[in-house]
Design a protein around this nucleic acid. Structure first.
Lengths: 196, 196
DNA sequence: GTCTATAGTTCGATAGAC
DNA sequence: GTCTATCGAACTATAGAC
């Protein structure tokens, strides 16, 4: 399987790998081309510029996350907690199944050239509002300002796994459990404390 | 105040700012020097190479975090939870009071040149084991493997704030509360569930 | 301690052959 | 679609004057 990829796709894959390993400034088109087995000039047949290539890689990474979120949403859940749990697992699995594309989005977006960042903002906002809606639905008594803080903390916890998760040392299941527990029980705990 | 900084210190400060804004590859010594008001060649009087300068900036960032942890540890706490809360607040405050140095450590370390990364590993390990010891002390019934996962999730949640925290929109206090609650109540909740 | 000048590389990008 | 060849610009780093 995974044979017969178009040259364009092979360039995208190699770019994702190099960009997430070395960063934008340290990834030259010559190095990228050599990974693909072509010359740097040939990259320009497929992409207008290095920035356009970067943008497309980041776009693909965000598409992966959004597609997964929508797929998880198809299922039926018997509780808000199990729905949250499914999305946490889905996010982590999508993240780590396509690390080269998605990790890039987590760790390199901040320092990406402004023109690249600007083009990606709408799609990133879209994914964030999906999570805001989810958290609002499963924690209906939690005020919006706290939902927003919870989402940011949850994203931070989940996405940090790109820095330390080692598939060889075990699955993402336990991490998924621990942080679902944390954010679920924490929100519940606060609700009760504030109500009293 | 903050007058009469040595040229060396002014270079370090400017480097921290540029590196965390633009990344290593996009920060040239010419640009750095122009921010300080000198020429690029003069940087070499103070530092051996661009990598050595980068290493020193990252080293300073880690020192800031470790110093703060030790300062927080001086206080007396009436509960494990308040001790954890104090360290979460301390970490977040140290992080954001010196963002240029510390954020760099969070977001750029992964893609730093291998020679730079290697030199920083011991000091980073030191800080991590301080937190592992802290969590083990305040959650004595939680198994070591889960402590390790909790620490990683907590670091992820706290450090992600470099991407979104806006001092103009409010303090770090609420975030600090929410995530202390989350990790405290979550661990507690798991302990009870597993015991039953 | 900072400068000018420059060596030596490497970069992104283009032109044009095949 | 990929190549060779190359332009012009930028880079890190060094040498040596002041």
């Amino acid at each position: 399987m995974t044979v017969d990829l178009s040259a364009r796709q092979r360039i995208l894959d190699a770019a994702a790998g190099l960009l997430s390993e070395r960063g934008y400034g340290e990834t030259s088109l010559r190095l990228l081309a050599s990974e693909v087995g072509i010359k740097a000039a040939s990259v320009y047949y497929h992409f207008d510029s290095k920035e356009a290539l970067y943008t497309e890689v980041l776009q693909a990474g965000m598409d992966i996350m959004i597609d997964r979120f929508e797929a998880v949403e198809e299922a039926d859940f018997d509780s808000g907690r199990s729905r949250l749990q499914a999305h946490v697992s889905g996010h982590l699995d999508a993240l780590h199944s396509n690390l080269q594309y998605t990790a890039l989005h987590v760790s390199e977006f901040r320092t990406a050239p402004a023109t690249v960042r600007t083009q990606l903002v709408p799609r990133r906002d879209e994914y964030e509002s999906m999570w805001t809606a989810l958290l609002t639905a499963v924690l209906p008594e939690t005020p919006a300002t706290e939902i927003s803080i919870l989402r940011l903390g949850l994203f931070g916890a989940m996405n940090s796994s790109i820095d330390w998760f080692d598939a060889a040392k075990g699955g993402l299941g336990e991490f998924s459990d621990v942080i679902t527990d944390a954010f679920w029980a924490g929100a519940d705990n606060r609700k009760r404390r504030i109500a009293s």
